[in-house]
Write a protein that binds this DNA or RNA. Structure first.
Lengths: 188, 188
DNA sequence: AGCACCTAGTCACATTGTTGAGTAGGTTGA
DNA sequence: TCAACCTACTCAACAATGTGACTAGGTGCT
C-alpha cells in the first residue's frame, strides 16, 4: 500500500517512466522508502490496473521504448486519502547494526571493515543530497524556500535525509574509534 | 535471513522466551530491525528446526508455561558466519515521511496531526533509551564502558538509537514550525 | 575487437510482514 | 465486581516486499 503511495507522490508533479522512477527512488525517496526497480514496475502495473495512473508508450530512437506514467484524477484522490490515514510506525532494517550488536559474538575485524565501507556509502549519499539541495534551492535561502515555495514536502524529507546521513557518519566514526581503542588496549 | 541473525544476536548472551524477545525487539532491537511477535515465533520455530537454537519448556505457577530458547554451538557458529558476510544496505520504511513528501497533494492539517503524534512517540522512545542507557552504564562513565566493557556492541547500537530519536524530534519540531509559518502566511 | 556499462524492461520465486482469531489464567484499578 | 490489561503463546491465510536471473540493443573506452 505505502509503496503505491510513495510512487503516487513521486508522480504527483511530473510524469515519468519506471526507469526514471527507479533512479529517483535511489537518490531521494530512499530516505523514507526503498524499492528496487522490479518492485516499481510491478506496482506501476497494479496502479494502472486500478486506474490510479495511465501509461503512454513513448518510442525512442536508439533506445528501447519506454512507458511514461502519469497520475489520473483517481490517483490524485487516492494520494490525498492516504494522507488522512494514520501512518504506521517506522520500520528500519540494517544488517550492519545487527552485526555491530553482535560484536562480541562475531568477527571484529570483518565488522570493522563493514563499518568503513558503509561510512563511505554514507558520505557518498550525503554528497548527493547536498547536490540535490543546491539544485532545489537554486540560490534562494532555505528560510525563504521553506515559507514561500509551494512544493516544500520533498524538501522537508530531504532535510531529514541530510541529518540522518550526518549522524550515520558521526556514529560510524565513533564505532571505529571505539574498536581501535579496544584493539590497542587488548594488544598491551 | 537477517531476522534470524537479529534473533541469534538477541540470544547471544541470555536465553529467553519468545515473549521476552518480543519485548526486547520492541525496546532495543527496533533501532535496526523490527519484527512482530508472530514473526518471532515463526522464526524461532525455524531456528529450532535448523538446530541453531534449542527450546526448553519452563512450567510456571500462576502463568502460562513458556518456552525458553538458547543458542546451540551451531547457532553461535552461524552468528559468527553472519558477521563475515557483507551487510546489505539499510532499508527504511516510514509512512509519515511519505505523507510529508506529499504535503502539497495531501491534507496539511491531517499531516500536521500525524507529525505531532509521531513526535510524542519519538520522545517516549528516547526516554526509554535513556533509561536503558542508565541501567547499562550503572554509574560507570561512558568512556570507560566503551573501552573496558566486554559487551559493547549493544551499547553502540543504543547510542545510534538515541541520536536517531533526538534528530527525529528536532526534525518534527522544524516541520511543525514550517507548517505553522506557512499557515500564518497564507492567512494574511 | 571486445568489455563494461546504460537504458528499459520481464518473470519466477523467496522472504518478510500483517491480520484476525483462539486459549487461558492473573493482576490492577474504579 | 467488573472491565481492562498482562503474560504467553498457537494457527492460518494472505498481502507486501525483496532477490536473482534474463533479454536486448546502444554507447564509450582501450
Amino acid at each position: 500500500m505505502a509503496l503505491q503511495d510513495a510512487i503516487l507522490t513521486a508522480l504527483a508533479h511530473d510524469e515519468s517512466s519506471g526507469y526514471d522512477l527507479a533512479k529517483a527512488f535511489d537518490v531521494s525517496v530512499a530516505n523514507y522508502w526503498t524499492a528496487s526497480p522490479q518492485q516499481l514496475y510491478r506496482e506501476l502495473d497494479k496502479l494502472e490496473d486500478a486506474g490510479l495512473v495511465t501509461a503512454r508508450t513513448v518510442a525512442q530512437t536508439k533506445r528501447p521504448d519506454k512507458r511514461v506514467f502519469r497520475l489520473t484524477a483517481a490517483g490524485r484522490k487516492a494520494l490525498r486519502a492516504h494522507t488522512l490515514r494514520s501512518p504506521k510506525p517506522m520500520a528500519v532494517r540494517d544488517e550492519l547494526l545487527v552485526q555491530v550488536a553482535a560484536l562480541e559474538s562475531g568477527d571484529p575485524e570483518a565488522i570493522r571493515e563493514h563499518v568503513v565501507e558503509r561510512m563511505e556509502a554514507f558520505e557518498a549519499k550525503l554528497a548527493v543530497y547536498h547536490l540535490v539541495q543546491e539544485r532545489t534551492l537554486a540560490g534562494r535561502s532555505e528560510a525563504d524556500y521553506l515559507v514561500a515555495e509551494p512544493r516544500v514536502g520533498q524538501y522537508l524529507t530531504l532535510l531529514r535525509g541530510i541529518s540522518f546521513e550526518e549522524e550515520n557518519i558521526r556514529w560510524a566514526q565513533q564505532v571505529l574509534a571505539v574498536l581501535d581503542a579496544r584493539a590497542a588496549a587488548a594488544a598491551e
